[in-house]
């Protein structure tokens, strides 16, 4: 059986007045029904652009220059634009980071949820209302009948994000794309919203693509993780594989640069420098200028994503992925002490 969604070698470029910004440079993903995958990366890594490209929501003047999107085994890339957009929007819905701007401020939230069932799915007014209330109940909004009549500003951030999820569900998609859905929320509310998304995946066999800068958030809910850097996927695998032995120096360092709530270390690892300027990507591996393990070969070729031997579904775009077990000796910046601070 073919996966729900396959993306092959996606490229997105943004023409700027004086340069071309290569925002996404060959990203491939697969999502199965009932599976949630996570895309993690820093700002500018191309993770959000990738997500938007899937739904044809790229901001002008960005455009997909290469790559294919395969939905249920059907390559939609070559289809006429209208038909392609319809197939993509029928299958996928998106949840955004900022729920306040994602909702229409002068329309009752219930009516916003009922809009798609009424206009696109052709339900009667009463049926659409009932459907909206049902959806609100599904995403865990207490007293949905009363809150149906609320305006977005009358709801708290967590409730608003639930409304956004209900709107996404109202189109009866098979795949939910969520772009930093919990970044604007408090940590206690974040836990609730993640639970809602995960519950929907379990109960309705939805596919989920979760984009976040926070690896911990991703690892809570996703079975597979794609780590993006400078517009490319540089490592993919399960959270267990990444944590037990990350095979790309960026992932490896990132895991040690972010403080762990359960394990304060004497000193965090730092990654020197900044991501490259994507208008002028240097030759070779894009992480090489910041990498402590760079060797001359790294600056010549940009290594493709390569499967890690003996580890299914684990791949890394580092030419030294086989030596990862020795990276713990990574000086001179120092691996953090494995001893708790006293």
């Amino acid at each position: 059986m073919s996966p729900l969604l396959e993306v092959h070698d996606l490229h997105v470029e943004i023409p700027l007045p004086h340069a071309h910004l290569y925002a996404v440079r060959g990203v491939s993903l697969t999502v199965d029904a009932g599976e949630s995958i996570g895309v993690v990366g820093e700002s500018g890594s191309g993770k959000s652009i990738t997500l938007r490209a899937l739904l044809g929501l790229l901001p002008r003047p960005a455009q997909v220059t290469k790559g294919s999107i395969i939905l249920d085994g059907v390559d939609v890339t070559g289809l006429p634009e209208r038909r392609r957009t319809k197939m993509l929007t029928d299958a996928m819905s998106m949840v955004f980071q900022d729920s306040l701007t994602a909702l229409n401020p002068v329309m009752r939230v219930g009516d916003q949820i009922a809009e798609v069932p009424r206009r696109r799915l052709g339900m009667s007014k009463r049926a659409a209302h009932a459907r909206a209330v049902e959806l609100m109940d599904q995403v865990g909004i207490p007293e949905p009948e009363r809150r149906f009549r609320a305006y977005p500003h009358q709801l708290s951030g967590g409730m608003r994000q639930r409304v956004c999820i209900a709107i996404a569900l109202s189109a009866e998609p098979r795949l939910i794309l969520a772009d930093e859905p919990t970044t604007a929320l408090d940590v206690t509310i974040q836990a609730q919203v993640l639970e809602v998304i995960d519950g929907l995946r379990r109960d309705h066999q939805l596919g989920v693509v979760l984009v976040s800068h926070d690896l911990a958030v991703i690892s809570q809910t996703c079975s597979r993780i794609y780590v993006m850097y400078a517009g490319r996927v540089i490592e993919s695998g399960s959270i267990r594989q990444l944590l037990s032995l990350a095979r790309h120096p960026y992932t490896f360092a990132l895991l040690r640069a972010v403080p762990d709530p359960d394990l304060p270390v004497h000193r965090l690892l730092t990654i020197p420098g900044q991501p490259p300027d994507l208008t002028a990507v240097p030759a070779g591996c894009s992480f090489a200028p910041r990498c402590a393990l760079t060797e001359p070969a790294c600056r010549e070729v940009d290594p493709p994503l390569t499967a890690v031997p003996k580890e299914p579904d684990h791949a890394s775009a580092c030419i030294r992925l086989e030596t990862a077990s020795q990276w713990l000796d990574w000086a001179p910046v120092g691996v953090p002490d494995l001893v708790k601070k006293t």
Partner: peptide, 9 residues
């Protein structure tokens, strides 16, 4: 400085 060698944006 061991921390930051940076190209400013």
């Amino acid at each position: 400085s061991a921390t930051d060698t940076v190209a400013p944006t």
